[in-house]
Amino acid sequence: MINGTSVPEDTTDLAVFQGTSPYEDYVHASVLGSLQQPFTDAPDEMSFLISTQVMELWFALIIHEWRAACDAFAQEDLTAALDALERSRRAHLALNAGWTPLAALTPVRFNGFRAAFGKASGAQSARYRMMEFLLGEKSAGILEGHRGDPVEYTELSELLHAPSLWDEVLHFLHRRGHRMPAEVLQRDLRRPYQSDPGVVAAWRRIYAGPQHDPLLRLGELLTDIAELVQRWRFDHLLVVRRAMGAKQGSAGTSGLDWLERRARRQLFPELWAVRSDV
């Protein structure tokens, strides 16, 4: 009690700062909180907007970790590569949970704000495209949609011409004595990756060998990531199917048809093929 007034127990733990707090200076919470600018009064738009923005932040973290893994493979540092992949796996779990606030949108509730964002579409996300390029799902035509933003265009162009995460893994395995076909090692990096029986054979030797081999852990971590990516795409498909059915997607995409094709794509195909041979 001070002059008959109760003081909260934690008051003594609060420092007084000139200007913003160190927390604000580090996290920029006020900046993040200012970025939600709904176009309508629809009660579900804020949830849609924040969920989408949070996904963009998870995209950025996952890109950071996959790039770190690529660098580690190039430097022959398997431990650092495995650590980065494990961090990306945990980040992707959080990314996938981001569909939860949107999973029960009904058509009427979605229509309450859908028209307001006009031609905006997740297909236009530069960070999502960067993730796909890092996974080996490349397309030079994608760059044209980002030509208006020099930073995005440059980053995507660099990733288009750079080895994907899977390319770096296969080159690393080759240097470790698991011989890879020349056509895989010398392939056009601008093209989508295609499965190769020689790569299946290399992974077969790893999977049939010692079960505590760090390379087997690498294969399983990559399989986890491939599964998480596919689950994210499938959950996206379900959210859209529930909220808008078979209507045409925003920005002129084919909606469900486009999402279904992407959900069927299999990443790191040799890691799935090898399971039938061991």
Rank of each mutant, 00 (worst) to 15 (best):
L57T: 08
E155I: 10
G255I: 10
S164Q: 07
E158I: 06
R87P: 03
D235H: 13
H92T: 12
R233Q: 11
P214K: 02
L57C: 06
L221T: 13
L143C: 02
V54Y: 03
S125F: 03
T40D: 01
P107R: 15
Q230T: 10
L173E: 06
P210K: 08
P101F: 00
Q230M: 14
L14Y: 13
L102Y: 04
V274I: 02
A251L: 06
D149Y: 10
I2V: 15
D77V: 00
L160E: 07
S164H: 08
A42F: 00
P43V: 00
Q266L: 15
A273P: 03
Q194L: 11
V199K: 11
L185P: 07
D235Y: 10
D188H: 06
Q186G: 06
G118L: 04
P22K: 03
A91R: 04
Q124G: 04
A123R: 14
F133T: 04
D10T: 13
D196S: 15
G177V: 03
T100A: 15
E227D: 11
A29E: 01
L160N: 08
G148C: 08
S125N: 09
L173G: 06
T154Y: 05
R217F: 04
Q194I: 03
D77L: 00
L259G: 12
L105P: 02
I50G: 01
A68D: 13
P38S: 02
H92E: 13
C70A: 11
G4T: 00
R90I: 07
S250A: 10
S157E: 12
L165F: 01
W203Q: 05
Q248H: 11
L82S: 03
L173W: 09
A162F: 05
R231E: 12
V274Y: 01
N96G: 06
Y23C: 04
L61I: 10
A68W: 09
V239K: 09
M131L: 13
V200C: 07
A104G: 07
V169D: 05
H236T: 05
N96T: 02
V7H: 00
D77M: 00
P192D: 06
R127M: 07
T253M: 08
A81W: 00
F48V: 08
H28Y: 04
P210M: 05
G112E: 00
P107H: 13
G98P: 06
A115C: 00
P101C: 01
P197I: 06
A69H: 05
A60F: 12
T253A: 08
Q248M: 13
L259I: 11
A104S: 15
Y193Q: 14
A273T: 14
D44K: 12
Q124T: 05
P210Q: 11
D41L: 03
S164Y: 04
F117S: 04
Q53C: 02
V200F: 10
E155K: 15
S250L: 04
L173S: 05
K138N: 03
A80Q: 12
L189V: 08
L215S: 05
L256T: 14
G219I: 01
W166E: 15
G145F: 14
I62G: 05
G136W: 01
F48H: 10
S254Q: 14
F39G: 08
G255V: 09
E158F: 04
V239Q: 07
A97K: 14
V229Y: 15
Y23K: 10
F172N: 04
F110V: 02
